[in-house]
């Protein structure tokens, strides 16, 4: 009986140490756009995995490049085969820190704009990325979104001169997390 007291005590201690929750999702959405005079290219992936540790402010995203869907199937094939080489580099990963993560109000309806700094690894190249993100809390649902753009050359993704007019050298990326679920400690 005394044992159970200690078990409860320590379990409580653990929870006390991690009072602020961790959030995760497996159904985040990342879309990207390339706009040019010749052609607009757009693709979306709705199986983005993300984890956010509120206490430390750490936030990470991972996405499988093969999961991006294009309007034209041939574009999708070329994207995987010729541009991001998804056989060699299957994933794109963002690891970053949300500034002042602890002070974000997660109870009650709330909208806060935060600054995120981190690194994006894509096509075997890691570059720093910083952007503003919006975290929305509405009737208990924690959601997040942000926009930023990357330059293809920074990630050693080359565009052959023949199609140079069809692909914008700068790609706009939109990240939307419809719902962050709180993670229960295992």
């Amino acid at each position: 009986m005394k044992y159970s007291f200690f078990v409860i005590l320590f379990t409580l201690l653990i929870f006390a140490a991690f009072g602020q929750p961790k959030y995760f999702t497996k159904t985040g959405k990342i879309s990207f756009y390339s706009k040019s005079s010749m052609e607009n290219i757009e693709a979306v992936n709705t199986k983005v995995v993300s984890v956010w540790d509120v206490a430390s402010g750490q936030i990470e995203f991972a996405v499988l490049l093969k999961g991006f869907e294009f309007e034209k199937a041939l574009m999708q094939e070329h994207f995987n085969e010729n541009y991001v080489e998804s056989d060699k580099y299957p994933k794109a990963v963002f690891k970053g820190i949300i500034e002042n993560s602890k002070t974000i109000q997660l109870s009650g309806d709330n909208v806060s704009t935060v600054k995120v700094n981190g690194t994006l690894t894509l096509h075997g190249v890691t570059n720093p990325v910083s952007t503003n993100a919006v975290i929305t809390v509405k009737s208990g649902v924690v959601a997040a979104s942000c926009n930023f753009s990357i330059t293809l050359a920074d990630y050693k993704i080359s565009i052959p001169s023949l199609v140079a007019e069809k692909i914008n050298k700068k790609i706009s990326i939109a990240v939307v997390i419809p719902e962050y679920q709180s993670m229960t400690t295992k």
């Binding site: 200690f6 140490a17 991690f18 995995v49 984890v51 430390s56 750490q58 990470e60 990963v93």
Partner: peptide, 21 residues
């Protein structure tokens, strides 16, 4: 239990957040 809680907390604070998710 003390060791267990420390191990658990280390695990939770590990750098690779995505692991397990």
């Amino acid at each position: 239990l003390f060791v267990y809680s420390i191990l658990l907390s280390m695990n939770l604070q590990s750098q690779d957040l995505l692991k397990g998710v």
